[in-house]
């Protein structure tokens, strides 16, 4: 009976902390040689929004229209945040804006996971923060507890709403993943449909997943090549090398960098001090680190 199953395997039903529970037998019981991660070079980012558009196309994101957008009900999993320099006299436009592409940071100790009452959001063995649409009851606690506010709720039933995918855009809906009905939470998945294809192909060919087997939609679309995506556990992968090069470590809550390196080290993770252990490393603009 399932109650006894629950009691006997309690530690499998709770969310283990990926850092503090290291060495915990049940944590070690799910070994994985894949940990998807990203590095985003803000110095290369021009704020062109191509990544965001690619994400809309790849992930069947509904285009909600001007009115709902201005109500804050947009569904942009990947959003470009624009910041202006501020001085006493107001906004400074001389140096232009700064841009920050922001999507789900796929935290290792995700604040959203522990609070979901029905366990609709969980950690996968390849280090992603998954969202089970079928299980979601729409309490929105995950979004309330997300420090980055990168979770998007289906305020309306978009697939049946007119002009969400006006013809012929409905012809290009991605068959590899579902559209979402009203009342469920959704967010960036690191293009899970692509990573699974890559993993399955590698398995069929009897080899480990190699760097370059998979690109996310945003990475593919970025004209400046600002986004690097790959397996952090593969020391040969570009993303792992970038993290290592910038002396940013996944399991550290505070990076202690080599001070003698000076301005070369631009890597940082956003809101690291809250200890969510995000899987996305940003590289500061040279302009900021040079000052």
């Amino acid at each position: 009976m399932s109650v006894s199953n629950l009691l006997e395997n309690w530690s499998k039903f709770r969310h283990t902390h990926p850092v503090e529970d290291k060495g915990h037998p049940d944590w070690e019981a799910y070994p994985s040689d894949i940990k998807w991660a990203m590095a985003i070079d803000l110095d290369a980012c021009t704020g062109c929004n191509a990544c965001s558009v690619a994400c809309y196309a790849e992930n069947n994101l509904p285009v909600v229209g001007k009115e709902k957008y201005s109500h804050g009900q947009a569904m942009h999993w990947m959003r470009i945040e624009r910041y202006w320099d501020e001085s006493e006299s107001g906004f400074e436009v001389d140096q232009g804006a700064r841009f920050l592409p922001m999507m789900c940071q796929q935290c290792e100790a995700a604040p959203c996971e522990t609070v979901c009452p029905v366990g609709a959001t969980n950690h996968t063995e390849d280090g992603l923060n998954s969202q089970i649409y079928n299980r979601c009851i729409g309490s929105r606690y995950c979004s309330a507890n997300c420090p980055y506010k990168v979770r998007y709720f289906n305020w309306y039933d978009y697939p049946t709403t007119k002009d969400v995918w006006p013809s012929p855009m409905n012809e290009q809906l991605n068959p590899d993943l579902s559209v979402r009905s009203k009342g469920v939470m959704e967010k960036c998945t690191f293009c899970k449909q692509r990573t699974y294809v890559a993993r399955n192909n590698a398995k069929t060919e009897g080899r480990p997943v190699q760097d370059g087997d998979v690109q996310t939609a945003c990475q593919e679309a970025c004209p400046a090549g600002a986004i690097t995506f790959g397996n952090l556990y593969d020391p040969e992968s570009k993303v792992a090398q970038k993290w290592q090069h910038q002396q940013v470590e996944l399991t550290k809550e505070k990076q202690d960098k080599d001070k003698t390196e000076g301005n070369r080290l631009r890597g940082y993770r956003i809101l690291e001090e809250l200890r969510p252990y995000p899987s996305v490393m940003y590289l500061e603009r040279v302009r900021e680190s040079a000052v």
Partner: peptide, 28 residues
């Protein structure tokens, strides 16, 4: 308040074939 009130029973710890339980760590 719930987005999908018709699935509210997911929050109950009822025994089921899929061994799916609510998340006992959630304050909610």
């Amino acid at each position: 308040h719930l987005g999908r009130v018709w699935q509210i029973y997911y929050a109950l710890p009822y025994p089921n074939e899929r061994w799916a339980w609510p998340n006992f760590q959630s304050p909610l």
